[in-house]
C-alpha cells in the first residue's frame, strides 16, 4: 500500500537567491564601492612605481650589508638598547600602577562611584585613541627631548591599554564572593582588595605582560621623534645615509623584540 502522506506533493516555498535590496542599501553599496576604488586609485602603488622601486631596494640592501660591526658603535647601540628597555619598563610599571585605580573607577558595579565610571572610561579611551607617536611629540615639546618624554609616552599608552582591560577584568570577576563580603559590611575598597583583585589576578598579569611587549615595540620607534631610545640612533644613521649602521641597529631591534616576546610568553604560561 502506498502511504499517501509520503506521496503527497508538498508545496515548498520558493526562496529568493538574493535577499531584497532596498534603495538605501543599494546607494550604500555604491558609495562604499566608490570609496574603495578612489582610495586604491589615489594612493596605491602603480605597477610602474613598484617596478622602479625594486632595483632601488636592491641597491639599499647592497649598501646595508654587511652591517656595521665597529665595537665602539656597537657599544653605543647597546646602551641605547638598554635605555629603550628602561623606557619600556619604567613606562609600563608606572602605567600599570596608574591603570589599577583608573580601571577600578571605570569598572561598572565595582567602582565606588557609579556615576563617574563613564568619565573614567572616556578618559581611558582618549589615552588609547591618540597614537603613541603623537603623545611622544606632545611630551617632547612639554618635557623636552630625551628618554623622559619616551617614558611618559609609554605610560600614557599603557594606561589606555591596561586601564581598559583591567576595568573589564574587574567587571568580570566572580560576583558571589563580592556579594558575600558586601553583606557583612565590607567597604568597596576592601571588596576590591579582598575579592576582586585576587580573582582577576591572572588576567591582570596577562594584560601587564602584553603591555610590556607592546611598550618594547613602541619604545623602539619613539626615538624617531626625539623621545629617546634606540630609535634616535636609527633615525640619525638613516639621515646620514649610514645604511650599514642602520642595518646593525635593525638587527638589534629585531633581536630584542624577539627575546621580549619569548620571555613574556614563558611568563604568561606560568600563570595559574
Amino acid at each position: 500500500m502506498v502511504d499517501k502522506t509520503m506521496n503527497r506533493r508538498v508545496e515548498l516555498p520558493q526562496l529568493d537567491r538574493v535577499g531584497k535590496v532596498s534603495a538605501i542599501q543599494f546607494t550604500l553599496w555604491i558609495v562604499v564601492g566608490a570609496i574603495i576604488i578612489s582610495s586604491i586609485y589615489n594612493v596605491s602603488p602603480s605597477p610602474q612605481r613598484v617596478a622602479e622601486g625594486v632595483p632601488r631596494l636592491g641597491s639599499l640592501m647592497n649598501r646595508m650589508f654587511p652591517p656595521e660591526t665597529d665595537p665602539e658603535f656597537l657599544g653605543r647601540v647597546f646602551w641605547r638598547l638598554v635605555e629603550t628597555m628602561q623606557i619600556a619598563i619604567a613606562g609600563t610599571v608606572l602605567g600599570v600602577l596608574i591603570s589599577l585605580p583608573i580601571g577600578w573607577l571605570s569598572a561598572r558595579g565595582i567602582a565606588p562611584l557609579k556615576a563617574t565610571t563613564f568619565l573614567f572610561k572616556a578618559l581611558i579611551s582618549f589615552f588609547r585613541t591618540v597614537p603613541d607617536l603623537i603623545w611622544a611629540l606632545i611630551f617632547v615639546i612639554t618635557v623636552g627631548l630625551g628618554a623622559v618624554a619616551g617614558t611618559m609616552t609609554i605610560m600614557v599608552d599603557t594606561i589606555g591599554f591596561c586601564g581598559r582591560f583591567f576595568g573589564e577584568a574587574m567587571e568580570d570577576a566572580d560576583k558571589e564572593p563580592q556579594e558575600a563580603l558586601e553583606a557583612i559590611g565590607a567597604s568597596k575598597f576592601s571588596i576590591l582588595c579582598g575579592a576582586v583583585i585576587p580573582d582577576a589576578m591572572p588576567s591582570l598579569i596577562n594584560t601587564t605582560l602584553f603591555a610590556l611587549e607592546k611598550a618594547v615595540r613602541s619604545s623602539v620607534v619613539l626615538g624617531l621623534v626625539g623621545a629617546g631610545g634606540i630609535g634616535q640612533e636609527l633615525k640619525s644613521s638613516f639621515d646620514l645615509f649610514q645604511y650599514k649602521k642602520a642595518a646593525a641597529i635593525m638587527l638589534a631591534i629585531f633581536l630584542i623584540v624577539l627575546i621580549m616576546e619569548w620571555v613574556t610568553d614563558r611568563l604568561r604560561r606560568s600563570i595559574t
Binding site: E176, P177, E179, G185, A186, S190, I191, A195, D199
Partner: peptide, 21 residues
Amino acid sequence: QKHCLVSRATALTNVVHGMLG
C-alpha cells in the same frame, strides 16, 4: 547556597575575610 568564597585565595585568607567590615 554557594560557598561564595574567593576561589583563588587560600582557606585561611577567606576566613580572615570574615573580619572585613
